[in-house]
């Protein structure tokens, strides 16, 4: 199960600019699927919704519930599109690797984009940066700075560490769950190709693990969105 990744190094002659083409491809595919789903659901809007529109409205209500749970709705409604995009994108990205894994030549091409730490950390960093941005925007720089000294001034170092810890845990939690699922799926797939016995022996564990990975994918998408809103409410809320 040691597949190489299709890495292109030093693009445009820039020393630090390396691409994993499989990641880029899967990011593109996941984004496209989410965008098409969004477009289809909003294509023919009706007063009494059916099909995809109904489902998307349920998702919107669900994320509304998440936002409403963590902060008051007047401040929270700004973050509804962010939460919606996060939950749909991460869910679709997680599912891509559960459906199948694609190997071309010796390189692993089709997988979940979220099974790469760089990508999940990018998302979590974006989220944390946004929380700081909205914190400053909503409360003003002074009030935002004072938050670091609450509830006790000498906790300031912990507060600063917390920001980095939040970023890391938010990204790595998602990455770890999805990556682990994919490794096991890959191992099972490798076993299945050894022969008829291997195929029959791995069929049931494969199905079971795919079911579990689906569950994990849904849960992780939910947790990521939930924690985003929790961190956001810490920064924009007044009761801290």
């Amino acid at each position: 199960m040691d597949h190489e990744a299709p890495i292109v190094e030093d693009v445009l002659g820039i020393a630090w600019l390396d691409f994993n083409l499989s990641n880029v491809l899967m990011i593109f595919i996941a984004s496209t699927i989410v965008f098409i789903l969004g477009l289809l659901s909003a294509r023919s809007l009706k007063m009494n919704p059916k099909g995809l529109q109904n489902f998307m409205e349920w998702v919107i209500d669900f994320v509304k519930g998440i936002v409403g749970d963590t902060m008051d709705w007047n401040t929270g409604k700004t973050f509804l599109p962010l939460g919606l995009t996060l939950i749909t994108y991460i869910f679709v990205a997680n599912m891509l690797g559960v459906v199948t894994l694609g190997v071309y030549g010796d390189e692993l091409w089709w997988k979940s984009p979220t099974s790469d730490a760089g990508i999940t950390l990018t998302l979590s960093t974006l989220v944390i940066v946004l929380t700081h941005y909205y914190g400053i925007k909503r409360k003003g720089l002074k009030e935002y700075g004072k938050d670091y000294l609450r509830p006790l001034p000498y906790l300031l170092p912990l507060k600063i560490v917390e920001e980095f810890a939040n970023t890391l845990t938010l990204g790595l939690r998602l990455f770890g769950n999805i990556y682990a699922g994919e490794i096991l799926l890959g191992l099972l797939a490798g076993l299945a190709t050894t022969g008829v016995g291997g195929f029959l022996g791995t069929a049931i564990p494969m199905i079971a693990w795919q079911g579990f990975s689906t569950f994990v994918g849904v849960i992780q998408a939910f947790i990521f969105t939930m924690l985003t809103m929790v961190y956001m409410s810490h920064k924009v809320g007044h009761d801290h």
Binding site: A5, D18, F19, V34, F35, L37, T88, A117
Partner: peptide, 30 residues
């Protein structure tokens, strides 16, 4: 971390795609 290291290109791609997706979905879907 993971299969290979953190690649700046991937990060940039993800960032660009996500912000684009956020904007497009906000405009056309949400």
């Amino acid at each position: 971390i993971g299969a290979e290291g953190l690649l700046v290109g991937d990060m940039l791609a993800q960032l660009v795609f996500f912000i684009l997706l956020l904007f497009l979905l906000g405009k056309f879907a949400w």
